[in-house]
Amino acid sequence: MKTIFLRVIKDRYLSLIIFLAANFGFAWMYIGLFPYIQSQAEELQKLIETYPQGFLEVFGGNVQLSFSHVENYLAMEMFSFIWPILIISLVVGMGAFSVAGEIEKGTMETILAQPISRAKIFFAKYLAGFFNLFVFTTISVLSIILLILVYGINFQLAHFLAIWLVGILFSGAIFSLASFLSAVFSDRGKVIFFTVGLVVLMYAFNILSSLKKSVEDLKFLSFFHYFNPNLILGDGKIEWLTLVVFLGAIILFFLLGLIIFKRRDISVS
C-alpha cells in the first residue's frame, strides 16, 4: 500500500507544483492590489451598496461587506472564485485518474496482478489524493499569509485557519465524489464530465436558492452553501452543519467508491 501511495505522490508532484504556482501568482496579484483597494474602500463600499441585493447574493456577498479588511477582500476576490476553481480542477483530475484513468490506460491490470487487495489499492490511491489536496490547501493558505506579511497588512490568523480547515473539507468532499465516480466509470472523460457537471449544478442550486424563495431549500444540496468564504474567512465562523455535511460527504463517497471498486469487473480495453 505504501508503495502505491508513494508512487502516486511522485507521479502527481509536478501538477501539484503547477497548481501551487498558479495559486501563488493569483494571491500575489490580489494582495499586491489590496493596499490600493483598501484606500478606496469607502468608495467601493458605496458602489457595492448600489448593486441589487440579489446580484450580491449570487456572488456570495452582502451589503455589509467591507474591503477595509484583507479577509473580506480575499474571501470575495479569491476564495469565492479563483481558489475553488484551482482546487476543484486539481482534485477532479486526481480523482479521475486514480481508478478510471488507470483502467483507461490499462495500467490498472499491472497493479491488480500484484498480491494486494482491491481495498488497499483504492485506499492507497485515495489517501495519496487526499494528501495532495491537504498539501495544496495548506501551502496555498500559508503562501497567502506569507504575502500578507510581506506587504505588512494586518490579518486575523484564526480566520485563515478556519478557511484552511473548511477548504480541506470542501475539496475533500469533491475529491471523494470524483473518486467514487472514478470507481464507477472506466474512462477519465466521464468522471470529469459528471463530477464537474454535479459541481456546476450545485453552484446553480446555490444561486437559484438565493434568487427564488420557492426553491430556497435547494441550497442545502449545494457544497457552495456550506463553503461560504465571506462567513468563514471574512467573519472567522464555521458552522457545525458545514463540518457535518463535508465530513459526511467525504466518508459516504469514499465508502461507496470502495464498495464499487471491490465488486466491479475491471477489464481494460
Binding site: 507521479d11 490506460k105 490499462g106 495500467t107 490498472m108 491490470e109 499491472t110 496482478a113 481494460v268
Partner: peptide, 10 residues
C-alpha cells in the same frame, strides 16, 4: 501475469 498488450506507465 503477462497482459495481451504491454500495460505500462508511459
Amino acid at each position: 501475469y503477462l497482459a495481451p498488450q504491454p500495460r505500462l506507465y508511459e
